[in-house]
Amino acid sequence: MLARSGENIFWLGRYLERLDDTARLVNATSHLLIDSHKDTEFGWPVLLDVMGLDSSHILMEYGLDPKDASQLAHIEQAVMQHLISNVESPISIRTACSQLKFNARTIRQLLPRDMWEELNKLDSFVQQQCQALNGRQQRYQLMTEISRRCQMVLGSVDSVMLRGDAFDLFTVGRHLERADMVTRIMDVMVLQTLQPSLLKRPRFRWISILNALGGVESYHYYLANNATGAEADAIDYLLSYADFPRSVSYCLNRVAASAKGLPDSAATLQHVQQLQALINQQPLTDLSTAQLHELIDQIQAGIIHLHQVLVGVSLSEQQALTA
């Protein structure tokens, strides 16, 4: 494989996962609202904040005042546009899908035909269906369908893609993104409970997040066999329960396992180890909400660092060759 293609296949994995997880992030909110009291106010701008954007600034661009309670319906609409349909938005599903297709086109020679076709179908579906957004019900179905189509791509990868450097880099990219997105989805919950205006409201239930991540049943299994507490254990489960494929710990294990076979992986493995230590250093059940938010920030910073290490390897490799 070309040195240059390494980064494209890594990004292909990241964008595919980002697409799936953004759809799950949107649906986590739907679950929250379904499970909440009808008067519950949901802090929609938080969805932009967890994606690393300044929600007040973005909403102003949509001509909205984030503090104006009367504009809540419009705020929801604008946040959804920014997350789903707006092609100018760096975090929208349509943007992620265009990036996915661009990377696939650049390294098509590495991709099996089945995967290439599933990617094409996914892209035409997303670009056509994510233009005008309707009510919550249709949005929920649309997001579910996007996740399902992402699974179709993964199914083709799983069944026909050669196991080699390209597959390993794809897997590393996918799990790094998943670890990152799971912490962001968790942060939605954490930030909701931190909002002063919502302190008097009933606390949102973690089960909604687990639902969007497809982990309700396995969480129950975990509770029955491993844990004692109640709500706080969902945090423990999502961060450190390495048997659940959407826990941060599982993702990091997969990054390490796939990176091991790649050239110059020592630095990557070292960073994964540091991140694992961070997650396992304290009993997570003891953390306050503010401490949890702080921990999530640290994990995200660690993931960014890990990304730089991974991408840096293939770049320095190229430079060494041309020197």
Partner: peptide, 30 residues
């Protein structure tokens, strides 16, 4: 890209190659 994929060979651009010791080389991941 189609022909490279169908033949199972690399698809490269100018800057992926270099000439050294009277031979042509490809810059690969390894």
């Amino acid at each position: 890209s189609f022909l490279a994929q169908q033949m199972g060979v690399e698809l490269a651009e100018n800057h992926d190659f270099f000439v050294e010791d009277d031979l042509v080389w490809l810059k690969t991941l390894r």
